[in-house]
Amino acid sequence: MLFGNESISEYTPTNVSIWMSMAFQAGLLNMGGFMACHRFVSHVTGFATFFGYEVNRADYKDAYGMLVVPLFFLIGCMLSAQLVDIRLKQHKRPKYYLSFGLIFLLVLGVLIAGLLGYFGTFGEPFFLLRDHVLLALLCLICGLQNATVTTVSKSVVRTTHLTGITTDLGIGLVRLINRKKLQEDMFKETRAIMMRTGIILFFFLGSLAGGYAFTHWHYGGFIIPALTSGSLFFLMYYFQVYRVRQQALKA
């Protein structure tokens, strides 16, 4: 992933470390969105639920907002697909560094805007346009992240929500339990089980860290995902751009 090769090894130590970091970050972002606006942001399902809830309350303004906000998750996925997936399909070097750079800039923007008071009081009741803007930005970040990792892992890994990962983990555990009946080599399945367990664990750890950070620092809690996304961006930039240029100069 760091080098932008088309033949991506799904379980290299580097890739697994990046996936765990992003699962940790997703847990943080989800907690931040929930504590700031009382809404989850890392998966679309909740917005469909809130839409039905607001319609039944005859609160059509918030209902329409709940339809618009998850579109930004879709936009984030599309941006990632343009930077990564399409380039892979064209046998070109995927621009992981741009995808991670956008994530970093968006998280940094949320952090700065929150600290400057543009999103109002942290944890206030959800009803203003600025709350919808914050949710939209967080959904955009999660869409970018989820689509990038989905492409890199060949649709094996999701880091922003746990439903699919938990489903795959359950299936994998049953396969492992019945390995004698299946008479198959379980090495790949065991490795996948460990990876999925790790993602679930790091998402929970991110949520725990977010609970502490946002309780004590409010919008300042976004400094943690800003640091993780910034570190990943500079790592990608170094390997995909800077080092490539240096090698070209030496050639």
Rank of each mutant, 00 (worst) to 15 (best):
R87Q: 10
I75P: 10
D131F: 04
H132C: 01
G114F: 02
H132A: 08
L116Q: 14
L74P: 05
K92T: 04
D85K: 15
F122R: 10
L115N: 12
A136H: 02
H91P: 07
P94H: 05
L67W: 08
I112A: 09
G76P: 10
L106G: 06
V84M: 09
M66F: 15
P70I: 10
Q82D: 09
V110I: 13
V84D: 02
L135K: 04
K92E: 12
F122S: 01
L129C: 05
V69R: 01
K92I: 01
L138A: 08
F119A: 01
L102Q: 06
F127H: 12
L98M: 06
L134H: 11
F73R: 13
Q82E: 10
L135M: 13
M66C: 14
V133M: 07
L74A: 08
I103C: 05
G65W: 03
L135D: 03
G76C: 08
F127R: 12
M78D: 02
Y64G: 00
Q82N: 13
S99V: 01
L138S: 10
F127Q: 09
F73H: 14
F100H: 11
D131M: 02
F119S: 01
P125Q: 02
F72R: 11
L108T: 10
V110N: 05
E124K: 06
L115H: 04
L74R: 03
I75H: 01
A113C: 13
H91Y: 09
L67D: 07
L111A: 00
G109S: 12
K95E: 01
I86P: 07
L67C: 14
G114S: 09
A136C: 07
G101L: 00
L115T: 08
K89N: 08
M78A: 00
F119P: 03
G65L: 07
E124T: 02
F122T: 04
G114Y: 10
L71D: 06
S99P: 02
Y118C: 00
G101T: 03
I75D: 04
S99N: 04
R93H: 10
Q90C: 08
Y118S: 01
L135R: 01
I112M: 10
L115I: 13
G120F: 03
F73L: 15
G120Y: 03
Q90W: 14
V84L: 13
V133C: 03
K89G: 02
A81L: 05
L105D: 06
F72D: 04
L134W: 05
I112G: 02
L116M: 13
L74H: 04
R87Y: 02
R93N: 07
L88G: 03
F104W: 15
C77Y: 03
L105E: 05
F126H: 10
L67H: 12
L71E: 07
R93I: 10
L111D: 06
